[in-house]
């Protein structure tokens, strides 16, 4: 299985690569300026987080929009990756009412896919100044926290997921299982 990581400049992009590698996935970190044509044979894609303020520095997010428009394989956006995909499909962003750095108690609202087999509540680690204020039409919120109403989203008619927190860091509980669930989604995906 081939799942690449789009590098949007996160401190933890390389951690996403490490988690996928340890799950025996054929993976590689590629810049977000990579043309979609070079990625069209992938089985799945992770959009990393990054330092840019997604709402005002769209250029720093490179070709993420093209990947979201053209890909027929599953995509998981992390942190700024989730913020970007939400805004791209019509959602709105803004400064977090309570910015989250470090441990956050996550409350799962939907166990159908990304959080399959995981507890209703567990601790994840986040690091973000901005957040998704309104999710795009056609998206469901599948997890929240007391300080951030939109911690994870899923698109209803396309295989696109987003998480505001960071499943790739060591301190996030069940982080590897979230990636395993994403890989299962990829395996089961019907083109």
């Amino acid at each position: 299985m081939k799942v690449y990581v789009i590098d949007n400049g996160s401190q933890w992009t390389h951690r996403e690569w490490r988690v996928l590698r340890y799950l025996k996935v054929d993976t590689k970190i590629v810049p977000n300026t990579t043309p979609f044509d070079e990625l069209k044979d992938l089985d799945g894609l992770v959009l990393s987080g990054g330092a840019p303020n997604v709402a005002t520095e769209a250029a720093a997010m490179g070709n993420n929009g093209e990947y979201l428009d053209k890909a027929d394989f599953p995509i998981l956006g992390v942190c700024a990756g989730m913020q970007f995909l939400c805004e791209h499909f019509g959602g709105t962003l803004g400064p977090g009412s309570t910015p989250e750095f470090g441990a956050v108690p996550l409350k799962v609202d939907d166990h159908d896919d990304l959080f399959k087999g995981l507890p209703d509540e567990f601790t994840v680690w986040a690091s973000h100044n901005d957040e998704v204020k309104a999710v795009p039409e056609g998206f469901d919120v599948i997890a929240h926290s007391d300080s951030c109403p939109n911690e994870a989203v899923r698109c209803r008619d396309r295989p696109i997921w987003g998480v505001q927190f960071h499943p790739e860091v060591e301190n996030t509980e069940h982080g590897v299982e979230i990636f395993q669930n994403f890989l299962r989604i990829i395996e089961d995906h019907d083109y």
Binding site: N8, G9, S10, Q11, T13, P31, N32, G50, A51
Partner: peptide, 10 residues
């Protein structure tokens, strides 16, 4: 190298 920053990383 991650924390030292580069073209895309702070």
């Amino acid at each position: 190298w991650i924390e030292s920053g580069d073209g895309v990383r702070d």
